[in-house]
Simulated scan of single mutants.
Amino acid sequence: MKHLTRLLVAAGVLTMVACSAQADTPPKNLKETISKKLGRPVDAVNSTPVKGVYEIVIGKNNIVYSDAKGQYMFVGELVDVTKKESLTEKRIAELSKTDFNKLPFADAVKIVRGDGSRKMAVFTDPDCPFCKRLEQVSLNGLDNVTIYNFLMPLPGLHPDAARKSGMIWCSADQQAAWRNWFFDGKLPENGPECDNPIERNMQLGASLGISGTPALVFANGQIVSGAVPQEQIEAMLAKSK
């Protein structure tokens, strides 16, 4: 989506934003109207730079847009052509922020490299191929960083991920078990039967609006989804320092 937006903006095709338009206050009953029509709660209704178009926030960080009557809605990106930036992406990033220091770090597999001064968290599924790519390519080689790995299996996609998560957590050497699995595909010999935080991690991820893995959380509270390249991670670590 981000790449597509850049292409459309560069081509002058995506012209949804009228930069000179004056934002107006959302109608008082719009939130209730849309909630009834969709049959689900609406978290917030906000103005946009486009008169008569309103931002509808559903489920913490999902954004759609509506007219003043809630009769027409569209899903897509609102782009400021002059600034060549997606206002939708910017708002989703704002809505997705969390308090990094309030994360339950005791429920994560902690890996420290170098002086560990830079901090980040990763929500990961042991059977997720993108999580393995993130480990092997993007995170491998990062220095002076502390990574808190929250095991968050996605049972709907990977039925055996919860068992593997438990085995890694229950290992006498969690860090070794982590590396052995993600780099060599070898699970520890122990079972998953110990007091583990796997269910709590799944609930935590849901509360943060994380529905897929991998998801990276930086010290400034920014959440980024996907197996992003190492240079982007370095930039985010520098930004959140």
Rank of each mutant, 00 (worst) to 15 (best):
T15Q: 13
V50W: 01
W178K: 13
G191L: 02
L139T: 03
G205Y: 00
N62G: 10
K84Y: 01
E234I: 15
L30I: 02
E55N: 04
T48C: 04
Q136I: 05
S211D: 13
W181R: 07
D125K: 02
L38V: 08
A23F: 02
Y72R: 15
L139A: 08
V57T: 12
Q174C: 08
T82Q: 14
I34M: 01
K31I: 05
V137D: 10
M1Q: 12
V17P: 12
P41L: 07
R113S: 13
V13D: 11
L7P: 12
F150G: 07
S47Q: 10
A176G: 12
E94L: 12
T98E: 10
T5F: 11
E89M: 15
A206I: 08
P197I: 02
Q136C: 08
V13F: 10
N196D: 07
K164S: 04
F130P: 03
K119A: 09
S225I: 09
A206H: 10
L38F: 12
L139S: 03
Q175Y: 04
V75H: 14
K119C: 06
F183R: 14
A21S: 15
K37N: 09
D43T: 13
Q232I: 09
A227P: 00
G221V: 00
M73G: 15
A215S: 15
I198K: 10
F100K: 01
A238M: 12
R6M: 11
V64P: 11
L30Y: 06
A161G: 05
K90Y: 06
W169S: 05
E32H: 14
A10C: 08
Q71T: 11
L14I: 11
V81S: 13
K90T: 09
R179V: 14
W169K: 05
K241D: 12
N180M: 12
Y148F: 13
S240E: 06
V53R: 06
L78E: 05
G166T: 03
A21E: 12
P197D: 03
Q230C: 00
S96C: 06
K60W: 09
S138P: 06
G185D: 07
P229A: 02
A108P: 03
G212N: 13
Q71Y: 10
Y72I: 08
V122F: 08
R200Q: 10
E94C: 07
V224F: 05
G209L: 05
A172L: 13
C19D: 11
L208W: 02
R118K: 15
P188I: 00
S165C: 04
A238E: 15
E199A: 14
A161H: 02
E199M: 09
V145A: 07
K37W: 03
Q71E: 15
F105N: 11
L95A: 06
I56N: 06
G185T: 04
L204H: 07
N190S: 03
V64H: 02
I233D: 00
L95N: 06
M167V: 07
M202K: 13
A235H: 02
A215I: 02
L204G: 04
N201R: 04
